[in-house]
Design a protein around this nucleic acid. Sequence first.
DNA 1: CGTGTGCTTGAATACGATCAAATGCGGTGG
DNA 2: CCACCGCATTTGATCGTATTCAAGCACACG
Lengths: 246, 246
Amino acid sequence: MDKDHYLERLVRKLETNSPLQSEERDQLLRLPLVLKQFEAGHDIVSEGERTKNCCLVAEGLVCRYKIVGDGQRQILSLHLPGDIPDIHSLLIEQMDHNLGTLTAATVGIIPHEAVRILTRSYYRIAEAFWRETLVEAAIYREWMVGIGRRSAPSRIAHLFCEFITKMTAIGLSDGKTCELPLTQPEIADALGLSTVHMNKKLREIRQAGLVRLRSNKLTILDWKGLCQLAEFDPDYLHLREASSKK
Amino acid sequence: MDKDHYLERLVRKLETNSPLQSEERDQLLRLPLVLKQFEAGHDIVSEGERTKNCCLVAEGLVCRYKIVGDGQRQILSLHLPGDIPDIHSLLIEQMDHNLGTLTAATVGIIPHEAVRILTRSYYRIAEAFWRETLVEAAIYREWMVGIGRRSAPSRIAHLFCEFITKMTAIGLSDGKTCELPLTQPEIADALGLSTVHMNKKLREIRQAGLVRLRSNKLTILDWKGLCQLAEFDPDYLHLREASSKK
DNA sequence: CGTGTGCTTGAATACGATCAAATGCGGTGG
DNA sequence: CCACCGCATTTGATCGTATTCAAGCACACG
């Protein structure tokens, strides 16, 4: 029953980039939260649904994705604990994509109404959530550039750079190594590649001594080299610390 | 000196999807606006900049884009009159991409402070702008799916469907024909394709009798066929009318 | 009537997809 | 402990789509 802990993680994330007053912080920590468990590979919310709740990722890895006509999947974003990936459902009625788990996950269900009361009462809270959605849009832009204009090796490297940077920002990595609980088909679907091709190029990256990746454990062996291959510049993540990291 | 007209267009767009009270509408119409002219192909705001203003597109076609290491460009979004493509700069200090003109354009410069006073005083105004940025994110997702998982012809068709739908929504098209002031290299850069390949596949679409495109005039000859090729479903644009159109 | 810009076309090449199969590995049950 | 199963990863071969390079064309504009 770690509800408080999960909300704290949310607040910590918001406060990293948006100032909150102590009353606002308290109100956020008092949000009603119903925890729900999901197995890996299951949908939390599906395309076309209209919900009255939003979902705080408490544990596990969650993604947005769409399926195209011929059955191919495009993963659109990855969401770590502390994210509310469907906060947009506050203002946009209908889901235009799916939200699903990549690992077993715990999700905190929060009624829209509870959030709406806060965003309408405290403009700083509204701005904090708004800002999160804007950073997400910045990540979309970066992914779009990758899928549209970067080579396969560069995209793979970029995913690693971004993932470990985000994990580090929420304290789940030391910046050198972290869990990467994605199968290769999932990585391929995030990058707009086929599994086979992704596997072959990943092998090259490994053989070039840039990373190690085994049984969902990612280790960066050559951060500079990896960033160079990826043309990774963490500015687009708009993390306060990330710029200093460089 | 059509400042009022341009602000009205903004308000009309916001009100299509977000309810506003008459006082809020009036406040928006009273926003200070300094008009500025740009030639085609010039930057309005560049990557790395920190501005104290945002830009209302008054006339012309504007886009976001990024340039990658080898000089290739990815166009990330298109912006029609009534858009404020850099409203995010209210909350995110640094531009992570460029904002440039595709045609000659008139842009209304609005100080952040003026907007911020409104969004902080009237939660409906904040929500209206927030919602616009969320719809933009939905469009990013759709583009990402296209670039990552759709064939070249499908992507081209999708661009046409989306563009004419958006133009129709703001009254600049009858749904059958409209201006499409993009060169083929620009279309290619929006779709993550090379100019040559884009040209060849466009030819096929034309020969299939789906569209006519000459001297920046787009005419839809077979809307159903085009939508089918594009797998276009306007739901993601979250326009109130669009769903009924289908 | 020449010139430039954007469009079109062809040929060669490369990158990534698809198809098919083998390998490795963790977990389960004999 | 070992055999087997299922899943993820790896590999090879072939095919197709898209890129690159290079040239020619067409129309608007001076």
